[in-house]
């Protein structure tokens, strides 16, 4: 069903002030499995995801979708590592993307209520989003991304502030989204979550894709010494 994928990245680089943050990266991504992006702090996960999403400036190389860029952008959503809360209540936060695309307010709010219920914010609809806890804000951001039914969903450590139970609930919701055809690209520091969710793994190191393989192979035994060390929890140089 996806008109979006495959995605082809060739020689993509993100440079800021003469320093290369990410790249050069070459990869192709095809549906429908979940791609999990792992790597140490500062290895470039966030930057790579925003490059692909189109919110970070591409300094060199190309990123091509299977459809015009505009269409591709409209079919994606992004859940940020630091959730952005609109200064509105929970319901209006979740309804916001729908309203942007012209859905009438009552309809948008009704859908927002459903999503809030599903994600576990059902009894906080009228609270100011800024007054939610960190974990609740992450859930809100996720609901706000899913409400658009994106074909491709980027998740940048969406469960970093969640307790075990919330994390399982979110993973179930994500698994449902995947079953309905959403391609997930997930950056995470939680190796348990990576094992549970991944179909493919991208291991980043120093801004480059150090290892890219199907998940079962990767977790059975990475090719590179760095990835092995990272999986064991050792410090990677």
């Amino acid at each position: 069903m996806s008109a979006l994928l495959p995605l082809t990245v060739t020689g993509a680089e993100a440079r800021r002030r003469g320093k290369t943050l990410v790249g050069p990266v070459d990869l192709t991504m095809d549906g429908p499995g979940t791609t999990v992006v792992i790597g140490p702090n500062g290895s470039g996960k966030t930057t790579l995801l925003s490059l692909l999403h189109g919110t970070a400036r591409l300094s060199r190389g190309t990123i091509t979708w299977n459809c015009p860029l505009e269409q591709a952008r409209a079919a994606q959503a992004f859940v940020f590592q630091r959730p952005v809360m609109l200064r509105r209540n929970v319901r209006d936060n979740i309804a916001y993307p729908l309203q942007l695309r012209g859905t009438r307010r009552p309809e948008a709010r009704a859908q927002a209520d459903q999503w809030a219920e599903r994600i576990g914010l059902g009894d906080m609809l009228d609270r100011s989003a800024g007054a939610l806890s960190g974990g609740e804000q992450q859930k809100l951001a996720l609901a706000r991304a899913l409400i658009l039914k994106p074909e491709l969903l980027f998740l940048d450590e969406p469960c970093a502030a969640l307790d075990g139970r919330s994390m399982r609930e979110i993973e179930t919701i994500l698994a449902n989204a995947k079953a309905e055809g959403t391609k997930l690209v997930l950056a995470t520091h939680d190796m348990g979550q990576a094992r549970r969710m991944a179909d493919d793994v991208l291991f980043l190191l120093h801004g480059r894709v150090h290892e890219a393989r199907p998940a079962p192979e990767f977790f059975a035994g990475p090719d590179t010494a760095e990835a092995r060390a990272f999986l064991k929890g050792d410090i990677v140089e």
Binding site: H53, T55, R73, A74, A77, F78, F80, V84, L86, R87, R88, Y96, P97, L100
Partner: peptide, 27 residues
């Protein structure tokens, strides 16, 4: 407010007009 909202609004592909409306309403 724009510094707060920037990433989200860019990600959602808002038009210039929607951007201004959102900021004016929320501020």
């Amino acid at each position: 407010l724009w510094t707060d909202y920037h990433d989200l609004l860019i990600s959602l592909n808002v038009t210039q007009r929607q951007k201004m409306q959102t900021l004016l309403w929320d501020a």
